[in-house]
Amino acid sequence: MDILTQQLINGLVLGSIYALVALGYTMVYGILELINFAHGEVTMFGAMICLAVIGALAGNGTGLDGGVIVLLGLLAAIAVCMVMGFLIERIAYRPLRRAPRLAALITAIGVSIVLQNLAMLIWGKQYITFPPLLPLVRYELGGAVITNLQIFIMVLSCLLMAGLLVLVKHTRLGRAMRATAQAQDIAGLMGINTHTIISVTFVIGAALAAVAGVMVSAYYGLAHYYMGFMLGLKAFTAAVLGGIGNIAGAMLGGLLLGVIESLGAGYIGALTGGFLGSHYQDVFAFFVLILVLIARPSGLLGERVVERA
């Protein structure tokens, strides 16, 4: 088996998930200059909601096809997360619109903790497994293996990202989003209700996070109330790597981070003579974050660095 090809495939799959989550961070930052630390938890809720729906429908004599059940779970996750995204902005961040940035940042951390605990109360502390509803098909590709699930994750991610780019670049709503990101008060003078645009931004980010959460839980076969924390940090790193506030940057940063992590995990054993194993995978993401912050704080595609508390 070709380790390089295999790790590249794994990395791209992981990276496309990171990219979907990173988009939520970067879009919100682009408009509010706020790191929405609760975003990782929205991803976790996506996974949990999907699994709850699957749990309720599967093996319950509904007679539904496995694929239909997963699809229903995914749609429910998207719907619930969109509502969550809307409510988080409305309840936690909108009252702080004119407050110092630090207040909003601390609130974001607070919302994150609240959501984690809420999930723990609802679903408990144990790992929830993703039932094998869909047959896993393996394909040979250049000496490596790629599964139908991996292909599905990459294709769906690409479609969603392409759709988002079209929305932002070529629609009236997208223009309003970019205008609001550049100057809220001037956008208001154009007749844009910036509150609505900010809500829409949160809702779109949450929908993407829901999809990513379902993908992660299907990919690893597990979900857990704490899973959003690490996933959120990784995606945030990806957004910073690409240049926070930049949508194409979040996509690039996500994919790159996935590949870096995967290759790192694949080769760390060989590089350290077996001293460090692949469970040190997480080290790479944060090593990359530190490097980016030192060498290129504005990220790969970032234009400017704004210093704000």
Partner: peptide, 23 residues
């Protein structure tokens, strides 16, 4: 027309014009 013009610098000229008709 605000002081300091307040144009959207990272939008194209055409996009700025279009956004003026947003309402």
């Amino acid at each position: 027309v605000p002081e300091g013009r307040g144009i959207f610098g990272r939008l194209t000229v055409e996009e700025n014009i279009k956004i003026g008709a947003y309402a």
